[in-house]
Write a protein that binds this DNA or RNA. Structure first.
Lengths: 352, 352
DNA sequence: CGGTGTATTTAGCACGTGCTAAGCCGGAGT
DNA sequence: ACTCCGGCTTAGCACGTGCTAAATACACCG
């Protein structure tokens, strides 16, 4: 099927090596021979890619890397996050796939298996790796390879990452709530070990400060690592159990709730509703990440959104334009506030 | 980095060939030597996969195929269907990915580029191909390769496919509408060249017959190939322009509309609404495929759904359990009726 | 015509593997 | 002692390629 240098050489009655030189634009080949080789190669359907085993082998011989035209998407381990729970995964993938297609790259989906990096990555069979919200530990492992690697949606010091602009996002949500007249805030879903977690909480605090709203540590609730609806509900349960106002009157001491992300926000919302608290009339809730529309929960979350497409395309662009490791650091994507059904003016609450 | 047979041999002071025999369980190697080789291989981190170039090369030498541990997902060309418009793509992918992970396979996303099959498939670098609703023509091209190939969600004669059970699905929807008291039906979105199209229309006709409902060719509307909202709306416009009752009274001659799929159904619904026809009060609409929840359109479509997960897992199972071409033919997945907001009793219409 | 230099071509190695055939070595049979 | 045989080990080829070094062809000059 696929032609080889040998078969071309046999066709033209010259040596295999000469064909190799001609195909790789080596100097010292007569123009006439080169032309003959090229046309014969065309005619016989010679495809360097088809014989990539040999090329890979020879590349190893000379300590070079060979481009495979494959970029790996490293998914979080399955038991942690099913694909459909990755925020708008198909949008990210859409961006990735479109840009990869434009650059004639293929996309390989793979996962870490029991702490081990995928063999396709370990054996350097990809041109780059885009990670979906991967842990700093895994990023560190990836740094050992001579590959461009970028983490999407999660800040990881010492590695390259692309994230939504958390500071701006939280500032937008708090401003939105303040503009609606809210003065008593709570925050749910902080993870002190997480870089994004710290950034969002810091932004939250400084946004409150900017609006001269008092900040109470008591109204922050942490969650376990698993970011599920149940985790959000549990966190809210905790928060309410410490809330003197809620214990006495059934009305929480806050009218605005900022959640670390949509999933936790929805969980917290569910818990609030189960306690007879109406949303948004009693408490306005905001999320982050804009995944709530996938779920049939009401009300839809007011949240922060950003272009998942751009996240994907930017990642592929970054990877394909470098063939060595990327220098550590991050870049932030612009965010917008999506006002939906879970937030309303605090006045409604006052007049109840 | 990666150990080779050579390096193991050097370590043990034996020949490279002996190492090769020991590793491939060749008979005629003393038990002691074999054990020494295996422990040394373990210790040095010998990974057959890492040296797959050489294995691929030698496989070519002996006319064998070498397993790469990669299955390709062949997407429809980009300009036709963006990923997010593939019905519940992330669910299918979820099933694919989970089963692939379980079998230690990786998943490669690729597209046909200007009519050409992806090079990864052409050069036999995958162990199998799962196609997403691919055309019969492309399936024919794929049949030329010595690979297991299966088409998902579309019947393709001469190739292997997995589909929802169209006959049962349409029977369910028609029965649902009949049970609601509907007697006057219309159908939108027929494509005579499409196998599924024919199957659904045939099922539609025989379901009507079973309920002794008269069938009018006049109340079937075809569409162009592109299955978009606009195409659905255009088809409905056509249908209404031929509808004498609608022309005279503004009320269409049908109270139940069966659409070939959700996308066309939603388009048709939009067109009906624009003509002042209420859904479901005036006309009940059903779709097929259950993708409407992704869109913010109201009312949500009553539709046929099936397990996208199962579609994916079944595909991977099929591919990974065969290393030659699959014999042509299909299998059908069980479907269920999802009653949502677009259908209601015909009585409501009668009493209006 | 022989020598010298340059343009063009070829020989050969290596990458790491699977398989065939040939080599080695100890014990049994004649 | 010589041959033979079976178990174990090694030599060698091939897959297709990129590169180095050697070989060949060719033109030129004294």
């Amino acid at each position: 099927m696929g032609a080889t240098q040998k078969s071309i050489a046999a066709e033209l009655g010259i040596s295999r090596q000469l064909v190799g030189f001609a195909l790789s634009n080596h100097p010292g080949v007569s123009a006439e021979t080169r032309q003959r080789v090229l046309t014969a190669a065309e005619r016989l359907g010679y495809d360097a890619f088809a014989n990539r085993d040999a090329r890979a082998l020879i590349a190893k011989r000379y300590g070079r890397r060979v481009r495979t035209g494959i970029v790996a998407i490293l998914l979080p381990p399955e038991f942690e996050v099913p694909l459909r729970d990755i925020p708008n995964f198909s949008q990210i993938l859409d961006g990735i796939e479109r840009e990869a297609d434009r650059r004639s790259l293929d996309v390989l989906l793979c996962r870490t298996r029991k702490g081990q990096l995928p063999r396709m990555i370990q054996s350097q069979y990809v041109d780059g790796v885009a990670c979906i919200s991967t842990t700093p530990e895994t990023m560190k492992m990836l740094n050992a390879f001579e590959l461009p690697v970028v983490n999407l949606g999660r800040q990881t010091p010492g590695a390259r990452w692309i994230c939504p602009d958390d500071r701006a996002g939280i500032a937008l949500t708090v401003k939105h709530l303040v503009d609606l007249g809210h003065r008593r805030f709570a925050y749910v879903g902080h993870d002190a070990k997480d870089k994004n977690g710290n950034e969002r909480l810091t932004a939250y605090k400084s946004a409150l400060k900017a609006a001269s709203i008092p900040f109470s540590e008591n109204l922050i609730e942490a969650t376990v690592v698993s970011q599920t609806l149940d985790a959000g509900a549990a966190a809210m349960k905790q928060l309410l159990s410490r809330d003197a106002s809620f214990q006495k009157t059934g009305a929480p001491s806050f009218t605005a709730l900022v959640a670390y992300n949509d999933m936790l926000g929805m969980g917290a919302m569910r818990q609030l509703q189960e306690c007879g608290i109406r949303i948004p009339e009693d408490v306005s809730v905001t999320g982050y990440g804009d995944i709530s529309t996938q779920y049939a929960l009401r009300p839809l979350l007011t949240t922060i959104t950003f272009s998942r497409d751009e996240l994907g395309t930017r990642a592929i662009t970054l990877l394909s334009e470098s063939d060595g490791p990327l220098k550590p650091g991050g870049e932030k994507l612009p965010v917008t506030l999506k006002i939906r059904e879970s937030s309303c003016a605090a006045a409604a609450h006052a007049s109840k």
